[in-house]
Amino acid sequence: MRKSNAVLLATLFSVCISAPGYGQDRELIGQGSQVFDTWCRACHGEPANPNDMIGTQRLQERYQGVMPAKLEDRTNLAPIFIETIVRSGISLMPFFRKTEVSDVDLEALKAYLTRNNPN
């Protein structure tokens, strides 16, 4: 039985702080950067105007500056948190199929988004 999103996300928010990343596998991080460009940047990049980059804007509203609104600037994303959001979606963000973000892509994305996490 799939856990409800609300329960899962509440759990994950509590573990995403100061989560260790994937170390510095540069090749994997490079691949993850490309995955981010293809699938994430259109909503989670740098806004060109107040209507742009809904992901960045909503995270700014949610965190109010306590954490960076841009995912690429975060240093506390847990790999399992990234996986859950990609595969379960959150708020208006839908989940992604494996023909879009494959399991291999997802591992690379996790490496990229956790590259600056403290070890």
């Binding site: 259109a42 909503c43 209507n51 742009d52 980059m53 809904i54 804007q57 708020s91 208006l92 839908p94």
Partner: peptide
């Protein structure tokens, strides 16, 4: 192309 339109989408679609 861009994704600006999602600014009008409510919480759960």
């Amino acid at each position: 192309p861009n994704m600006e339109i999602f600014r009008i989408v409510p919480q759960d679609g």
